[in-house]
């Protein structure tokens, strides 16, 4: 990226292998030493045009641990954008106050557009169905942390692979590290063709299944579970047929690899049985905690603040 240009964090597709490795290492150092005065005197705006408590709290925790100040809103209903103000005008206004903008929006491409109209760095905290790159960074950090590496891993993704943007972004993020993918989904929620084309262009191995079998689990290093939501189905009969097939139960893990870890972007509904929670391979709660460290790394990266690695 151009040294003189201000940095933003908008899409996983913008990140090089080096960018990802730098951010992962930085997250690791924040995990060792999360409370630092790096953002002292800085004001960070969290603009949530669409509510997402989980993501907002994670970002605001990251800022607070770095001694920054937070301004913003958690719901567009309380802002002037509900009175018809354009995104441009809101961003221009906030740019007068803040050193950094973290934004979530229901429209796709909103963060990219915002990054073009302001000199303040913009972090995308989710734009409609398009991108949620800080989630991808926390997924990548969780994989790195549990496996000790990102290279040459077998990643099995289960559930809604059609609409699940975390799945799509993780494919793009992992594509630099020679992964093998297994995709387990009902017919109606299969991975879209454009991602298969993407993997073919990159020469990556992948295989698709409709059966959630132990055989596939046993060959995996990472099991990435997602929700299968009723409202995604055009045919409710089809939903009734498949709704219990993509549920992970503890007895399905008995012959899995020692290093297998189970990830889930959360919140879960019923796709992981509660008896899995006590298995040491269940990693989804710690995964969410990693979000704060990954977001500390992202914030410092876009602000270009040099911070010494933790001792």
């Amino acid at each position: 990226m151009d040294q003189m240009k201000k940095k933003s964090f908008v899409s996983v597709a913008d990140l090089s292998k080096e960018d990802i490795l730098r951010l992962v290492k930085s997250a690791e150092s924040f995990e060792k030493n999360p409370n630092r005065k790096i953002l002292e005197g800085k004001v960070c705006a969290t603009l949530f045009f669409e509510p997402s408590t989980r993501t907002r709290l994670s970002f605001e925790t990251a800022i607070n641990r770095l001694d920054g100040k937070v301004i913003g809103f958690s719901d567009a209903a309380t802002t002037s954008s509900s009175k018809g103000e354009t995104l441009k005008d809101t961003i221009k206004m906030v740019s007068n106050y803040a050193d950094l903008i973290i934004m979530r929006h229901y429209l796709e491409g909103a963060a990219r557009y915002a990054s073009e109209i302001t000199d303040v760095p913009v972090i995308n905290a989710g734009d409609g169905a398009n991108q949620h790159p800080s989630q991808t960074m926390l997924d990548l950090y969780s994989i790195y942390k549990t496996q000790g590496k990102l290279n040459n891993l077998t990643i099995t993704m289960v559930g809604d692979l059609k609409y699940g943007r975390t799945v799509h972004s993780l494919i793009v993020g992992m594509s630099h590290f020679n992964p093998a993918f297994n995709f387990i989904a009902p017919e109606e929620l299969r991975l879209p063709d454009i991602y298969k084309q993407f993997m073919e262009e990159k020469g990556l191995y992948y295989k698709e299944y409709t059966d959630f079998s132990e055989e596939v689990i046993n060959g995996s290093d990472i099991l990435y579970m997602t929700r299968v939501q009723r409202e995604r189905f055009t045919d409710l009969m089809e939903y009734e047929k498949v709704k219990n097939i993509y549920i992970l139960k503890n007895n399905m893990l008995k012959d899995s690899k020692e290093n297998l870890r189970i990830l889930h972007p959360l919140p879960r509904v019923n796709e992981i049985a509660y008896d899995v929670d006590d298995n040491f391979k269940a990693y989804y709660f710690e995964q969410a905690k990693n979000g704060v460290f990954a977001r500390q790394a992202i914030i410092c990266d876009v602000l270009g603040t040099n911070h010494p690695p933790a001792p």
Binding site: S11, A13, K88, E108, G109, A110, Y113, D127, N130, Q131
Partner: peptide, 27 residues
């Protein structure tokens, strides 16, 4: 966003032969 704000659309031509475009906003 380009259909909801007063702004110009931007597309990358990702395949000149097949004429495939990619929106630089929603991707």
């Amino acid at each position: 966003i380009s259909n909801n704000e007063p702004m110009k659309t931007r597309f990358k031509v990702i395949d000149k032969e097949k004429v495939t475009l990619k929106c630089e906003y929603c991707e």
